[in-house]
Nucleic acid binder design. Structure first.
Lengths: 210, 210
DNA sequence: TCGACAACCTAACAGTCGTTAGGTAGGTTC
DNA sequence: GAACCTACCTAACGACTGTTAGGTTGTCGA
């Protein structure tokens, strides 16, 4: 057992490989580079993971886990706000607040756990088939949470429309990993922009709170 | 000279490598695979390109060329509509038409020349530094065209806001390469959705033509 | 004190990679 | 018909890849 290890070897491998995969891509990152990054040798990685693919899957799984957990946390906080018997807030402001909370959550996890989450957007598509098929169910589960959210917010839209709107929203949020600097920019402000953009477009500010 | 070659060797290499890079990624695509795809041997590629990197740069350059050319074509068609002395249409409908034309153009080239354009979104970030720095100026030129367009459409917005709005719009459009099937879906319809989404958000259909 | 086990390392395997030097078939030019 | 050029091919180079079999170290409970 590793009582005195501040952080276990497995965890250090995950952290390092996630970082390097996110920076350089999957194929461009060799096991020797990962190992060297944490003062290990390439062969040692096989004590913790059966293959490079399995390591990648583990990183990707943690990425969606983080996203899914946050989504559920936001839902939980929301429901506790209305615990006193009153049902959900169906007003325009209430709807906006709900969407904003989820957009902010998505963006916070995306940028806060960049190394684990960004891979799903940048590197996933070139991953080996076996890796993709192992992770797709988890991705689907997360996406369906958003589909349900949007369906509740826009009950008069068709399934197909909801699907496209979700993809457009995801595109706007996820593409931010290519340019948004979490150190410099204001993530809260960006979450507001995305939310308003999604709900009322570029129409002037003063007409946004309808 | 190659008068009788239906399509030159160089062109076949470009087409094949673009396709394979787009499907599998840069590092995952070996020169031997590219060569085999057009019944050549890997060494032969070096008659037309000095290195794998140079080949990649050529593919990327063509990608932006296609995008830039289309953008200018749309602008040209627009200005010819108003040739009879009347200045540009500044009405809401006119603005929408203009944006729609550019969104449709962007999406048409993006999906119509998928192999050349998609790389900029999916694979560019993991490319070697030398590749990126060679292509960045061309990308900047294309992006500045959009910045100017949005600035003209939204004169009361700050430079920073315009920048973010452009990135959000690009995110919504470009992420479609991950899911939009040009064979099945209706690109025109999608262009309309993106345009309206950008301008007036998810507000009900009947209030969109204001 | 001894065996067990977790957590590494060593050294090598077969394969693939980008790249290059030298060769060759066919067409053009003089 | 000789010289030349274009557009390839052949065969190999060193470097790097994921992976594995077998060894080493330190800590543990008994």
């Amino acid at each position: 057992m590793e009582h005195r290890a501040v952080v276990s070897g497995r965890e250090r491998i995950l952290d390092s490989s996630a970082q390097l995969f996110a920076e350089r891509g999957y194929a461009e990152t060799s096991l020797r580079v990962i190992a060297a990054d944490i003062d290990m040798k390439a062969g040692s990685l096989y004590y913790h993971f059966a293959s490079k693919d399995e390591l990648f899957v583990s990183v990707l799984e943690r990425g969606i886990e983080l996203m899914t957990d946050r989504f559920e946390l936001v839902e939980l906080e929301r429901s506790s706000t209305f615990d006193a018997g009153s049902s959900a807030d169906l007003s325009a402001v209430g709807q906006r607040d709900r969407l904003l909370a989820h957009v902010r959550g998505h963006l916070e996890v995306l940028h806060g756990h960049y190394r684990y989450t960004a891979l799903h957007i940048t590197t996933f598509r070139t991953a080996p088939e076996s890796v993709r098929s192992a992770v797709v169910p988890l991705r689907d589960a997360y996406e369906s949470k958003w589909t349900r959210l949007l369906t509740e917010m826009l009950p008069d839209r068709s399934k197909q429309e909801i699907g496209i709107l979700r993809l457009v929203l995801f595109g706007a949020m996820n593409s931010s990993i290519e340019w948004f600097d979490a150190g410099r920019g204001n993530l809260d402000q960006f979450a507001n922009v995305v939310t308003d953009q999604f709900l009322v477009g570029v129409t002037p500010q003063e007409s946004q709170v309808r």
